[in-house]
């Protein structure tokens, strides 16, 4: 299975302010009553975007200046909480292809990488600068250079971090591991065979 090499993401940015934005916020549990991920994008950030009657609240994702955004910016520990892949799936299906935050929760980070969504870690100051630039002109292009760990926006650019294993996986088209995991069936059987509790 050859996967796309994800070395660069270009798009417009949008900022969802806040730290500790958890997976319940990204996709409220009641929308996880589904047997496929299709259609999840619609419910992204639902409770912070919508009033109970379905009308819009004030939220950057409801702001039409940012409705073409494909890169999401946020604060610290983004995606904390549950292991639900529904969260990155909802982001992906809404149209996000890259994330910039100060830090991420572990499982969320791994889930995003497996879907081919690069998660860039940037400093608070740099995020502020990017946000200021997109607020001033929502149409500027933000470029996530995965290979060189740089974020460019307008005529500025800052360094950022994409964790080694994720960067390698994305750049070499190995972000979905299933192919490689399946290569070594007999070695798996050998390791399993040495473990008593694995016996039938």
């Amino acid at each position: 299975m050859a996967l796309e090499k994800i070395t660069e993401i270009k798009g417009r940015g949008v900022y969802v302010a806040g730290n500790e934005i958890d997976t319940d916020r990204i996709i409220p549990a009641r929308f996880m009553k589904c047997v496929t991920f299709d259609g999840l994008g619609e419910y992204l950030f639902y409770d912070v975007r919508k009033n109970e009657d379905g009308s819009d609240k004030q939220h950057s994702l409801n702001d039409e200046r940012f409705d073409k955004a494909s890169i999401l910016l946020s604060g610290e520990n983004f995606g904390c909480g549950s292991s639900r892949e529904h969260a990155p799936q909802a982001l992906y299906r809404y149209g996000f292809r890259g994330l910039i935050a100060e830090s991420y929760a572990e499982i969320f980070f791994g889930n995003c990488t497996t879907l081919g969504i690069p998660c860039f870690c940037a400093t608070k100051e740099d995020i502020k600068a990017i946000v200021a630039a997109i607020e001033a002109d929502p149409s500027i292009e933000v470029t996530l250079d995965v290979a060189n760990e740089r974020i460019s926006f307008g005529d500025q650019s800052v360094t950022a971090v994409v964790r080694d294993s994720a960067r390698m996986a994305l750049c070499e088209g190995k972000w979905d591991m299933i192919g490689e995991l399946r290569e070594v069936e007999s070695r798996i059987a050998e390791v399993a065979g040495a473990l008593r509790y694995m016996a039938k």
């Binding site: 292991s83 639900r84 892949e85 799936q89 497996t114 299933i178 798996i188």
Partner: peptide
């Protein structure tokens, strides 16, 4: 705790990638 794509990996291979 793992995500759904890793559940797929486990079902298919009983293994997963982890740092």
């Amino acid at each position: 705790g793992i995500g759904t794509t890793q559940i797929r990996d486990l079902l298919a291979t009983q293994t997963m990638a982890l740092a």
